[in-house]
Design a protein around this nucleic acid. Structure first.
Lengths: 214, 214
DNA sequence: CCGAATCCTTATTGATACTG
DNA sequence: CAGTATCAATAAGGATTCGG
C-alpha cells in the first residue's frame, strides 16, 4: 500500500491505507470469530482468488493485524488468527455491518452467499445489553462457539469454555432459524431442534438481547 | 459496484459494496463537518482526479449518502452535503480514525498533507465526555464551526449558531497549536493568539475533554 | 491436499486535456 | 466552476502450475 497511499496525515486515511484494499476487511470479519485455515478462508470468502488471499494475508501479517498460528495438537494445519491489534477492529467491522444491515431487509439476492458465521458475527452488533451477564457454550453444527454476554456488550468466539452457564446444541438449520427469528427459542427447544444443558434463562436473555424471538 | 459486488448476504460485505471503492470514505470524511464544493473537495482530497471525484459523488448520490444542495443566496455554487444516511456514517469514519491514530504518533511523513479540517474531525473521536454540556462557536480562520458538547459525545459542524455559550476566534496557526496540544488553551488566549467572547470554562472543558492541554 | 507463485485477461484508477 | 473524454498505468479476476 505504499505506492497507492493517500499521503494524508489523518487517522481515517492512514487506516484506509492499511485496510482499504479489496477483501482486506472481509478477511478481518471472517477471523473475528476465531482463527481459520487458508482453505477455509478461500471458501468462506467465496470469490477471492488464491493469489489475492495470499497477498492480503501477507499484508495483514506485515501490519500486525493477523498472524499464523499452529493448530492445537491433533491437527497440524496452520491457522490465521487476529492479533490484539486485529481484534481492535471489531467495533469498526460491526459498524460497517450496522450501515449495511438496512440493505438486507429483503432477504438474500439471487446468487448471494449466505453464511451462519456472518449471522453470528452480526449478533455482536445487534446486542442491546442485558441486566444478567452470562457465558453460553453454543454448538453450531460442528462448530463450538462461546458467547460472553456482559451488561453492555456481547463477544462471540469459536472454541470451548468450561465456565459456561448453559450449553445449547443443534444443527446449522436450527441455528439459522434462531438467528433470523423465524422460530422462537422456546419452540426450537421444545421441538428438539436445539438441545440445552443448563438453565433456560441465559439463552432466552441472549435471544431477546439480540432482538430475536424468545 | 454492481459488477464487482462481493455477492454476500452480510452487512459488512453490503456496506463495502457501497463504500469500499477507493476515495469514497474519504469524501464522506470531508463532508462530515459540513457541505463542500466540488473544487474544494478536489483540493482537500489532494490527489483524487476530477473524473474519479465526479464518479464517486454520483455513486454517493445514487446510494442516498450525499446530495447536491444550493449554497445560501450570496453565492451560486452547488455544494455537496451528506444526507441523514450519510451522517449515520460518522461513527464508522471516527472508528477508522481510531484505528489509524496510533500510526500518527511520529508526526506527518515526508510529503503528507496536513489539514486542520481533519484534525477538527478527530476531536469528535478524541472526546472523552464531560459533566458540563455546552455549545461553542469557533472561528477557525475564515471557517466558522459549531462544537456541540453533550455529556457523552461531541458533534462539530461548520456554520454559525446563535445559541453559543462562548465564541473563540483565531487564525489557523493558533488552532493548529491547540489541537495538537503544542500550546495550552490558556496560553493561547493570554498571548492573544485566540480571542474569546464569553465564559472561559466551556472552552477549557472542551480542551480537556479532547485530551488537549488546558 | 495445503499454501502459495505465475501467466494472461479484464476492470479500475490515475493523469491530462477538453467542454458547457 | 463543475464536470466529460481519452488513454496509459495498476490492480483484480481466472486458470494453471509448483513445492511441501
Amino acid at each position: 500500500m505504499s505506492k497507492r497511499s493517500y499521503h494524508q496525515f489523518c487517522g481515517v486515511a492512514r487506516a484506509l491505507d492499511i485496510l482499504g484494499e479489496r477483501w482486506t476487511l472481509l478477511i478481518v470479519r471472517d477471523l473475528l470469530l476465531g482463527p481459520m485455515r487458508y482453505v477455509d478462508l478461500l471458501q468462506s470468502l467465496g470469490g477471492i482468488t488464491t493469489n489475492l488471499l495470499a497477498a492480503r494475508l501477507k499484508h495483514l501479517e506485515a501490519h500486525g493485524i493477523a498472524e499464523k498460528v499452529r493448530a492445537p495438537p491433533p491437527s497440524v494445519a496452520t491457522l490465521y488468527a487476529l492479533t490484539d491489534r486485529g481484534q481492535s477492529l471489531r467495533t469498526l467491522v460491526l459498524e460497517l455491518g450496522r450501515f449495511g444491515a438496512p440493505t438486507m431487509a429483503g432477504g438474500p439476492d439471487e446468487g448471494e452467499t449466505v453464511s451462519l458465521r456472518w449471522a453470528m458475527i452480526s449478533l455482536m452488533r445487534r446486542f442491546g445489553g442485558t441486566t444478567r451477564p452470562a457465558t453460553l457454550q453454543l454448538q453450531v453444527g460442528e462448530q463450538p462457539l462461546v458467547a460472553r454476554m456482559a451488561t453492555d456488550r456481547l463477544v462471540m468466539q469459536t472454541g470451548l469454555t468450561d465456565a459456561a452457564d448453559v450449553t445449547v446444541l443443534g444443527p446449522d438449520s436450527a441455528w439459522l432459524q434462531w438467528v433470523s427469528a423465524r422460530a422462537s427459542a422456546r419452540d426450537l427447544l421444545e421441538r428438539g431442534d436445539l438441545e440445552r444443558d443448563g438453565p433456560l434463562r441465559p439463552f432466552l436473555d441472549l435471544t431477546r438481547a439480540v432482538g430475536g424471538s424468545a
